[in-house]
Design a protein around this nucleic acid. Structure first.
Lengths: 227, 227
DNA sequence: GATCGGCGATCTGCATACATTTGGCGTATG
DNA sequence: CATACGCCAAATGTATGCAGATCGCCGATC
């Protein structure tokens, strides 16, 4: 209830809580983030609240209009399509760099991670698949050894993960993802950077493509978390 | 009535001034950005200064260490290599989308812009080339019609342009860039997305590759603007 | 002479107070 | 009855005050 004794700075704590609530859908798009209200809620002054809101604005989660307050950003369908396009590109680079750097042990690890995806797909367990899929991608991205790339991917993931989860629910999507993962792994195994890149890009973009219908349906609603 | 009431908020103004000074090199890497000093300098309180610094931090231009103040961020060589890699990727996507969307009139416009680059190269006018080159790339990126991509490219440009200018000074670099631009235009003209993508990526990455020596030399100095 | 510990200046982090802007509501008017 | 004007409440933008933390300096001690 009343979360007190923040071991870290107030601002940092507030940022992570608000971030979480926005991404979970507790705070819906267009919801107002009132400085005073939040100040009361977190038992702090408006100053750290403002800092947190500025931070969220710069990561794109909220919109700040001068003298008009802060609202949770609503991503339009085109926003999402645009972002998935860029996201695919970055993941593609991640896979390409992975093809250069992964040891054979690490490739085995990748196969193992994809096997978990495959199991989840067999069991038709979307939640399990979603987590395993994230692990697969995270592992690969981390091995790119490009921290800038990694931070950009993580930043975008914050926005897109909710939608990725939706996409997972599409019929046969899980099976196809497993296939595509396998192709990517094969390309990496052969050290074929270019192929790894292209395959990964298509994997993520198809993901966006097949998602378009869902996104359009969502357009009239609140957002990814709406029932 | 007393003061003309700044058309924009103090913070916005401060951000753009500081941004400019950092990118121009007026403020060198590792330079301290003292809140009180800046407050005196801009005739405002510390609050808008703090907001501006937070903003600069989120765009990566400065580092804020808790209780230790704010300093101009020093980009290491690996930071730059990593960023150029990502930058190449994004520009590649820009070119790919351009290949889909550019009308033939716009392609002519691209050729014209590259001709200015060529003229500058002939005249060995690095400054002119640099500007013309930016125009060439900006025009193409803008036609991608992907605003997210565009904003990411612009964000990165802020960091990288100073280095791109350096690279321009490399012997024969200008001529080669003109050649590469031509190949990219040809690919776009043929509607060959994939080629446009790859060529642009290589164009920018080579740019990074050939720059590595320069960057390493700079490592021991202040930064791109040091004489 | 070198090193360690304590003290003080200074700065950041947060709280509070004041100023300005915005948007709503009620009233007056065409 | 619709529209426009003006006032008021509330929220944001800015200023300032206070407490805790960090760093440098100076003296004491080995």
């Amino acid at each position: 209830m009343t979360k007190v004794a923040p071991a870290v700075s107030s601002t940092a704590n507030i940022i992570s809580v608000l971030e979480d609530e926005i991404l979970n859908g507790t705070l819906a798009p267009e919801d107002r983030l009132d400085e005073q209200g939040l100040a009361r809620r977190f038992n702090v002054s408006r100053t750290p609240i403002r800092e947190a809101l500025r931070h969220l604005a710069s990561s794109g989660l909220v919109d700040i209009k001068p003298n008009q307050g802060t609202t949770v950003r609503r991503l339009t369908t085109s926003d999402l399509i645009e972002m998935f396009q860029v996201f695919g590109e970055l993941c593609g680079l991640g896979a390409q760099l992975g093809a250069r750097r992964l040891s054979s042990a690490e490739i085995d690890k990748l196969r193992a991670l994809n096997q978990v995806c495959a199991d989840a797909a067999e069991e038709d367990d979307a939640d399990k698949f979603f987590r395993a899929n994230l692990e697969f991608h995270d592992f690969l991205d981390a091995r790119s050894k490009n921290n800038y790339l990694l931070s950009e991917i993580h930043k975008m993931s914050k926005h897109l993960n909710a939608y990725r989860r939706f996409i997972t629910l599409q019929p046969r999507r899980m099976m196809r993802s497993v296939e595509e993962h396998n192709q990517i792994i094969d390309a990496i195994g052969k050290g074929d950077e270019e192929a790894a890149h292209i395959l990964m890009r298509k994997h993520v973009n198809l993901l966006a493509g097949s998602a378009t219908d869902v996104l359009i349906a969502l357009e009239n609603k609140h957002g990814p978390s709406d029932g």
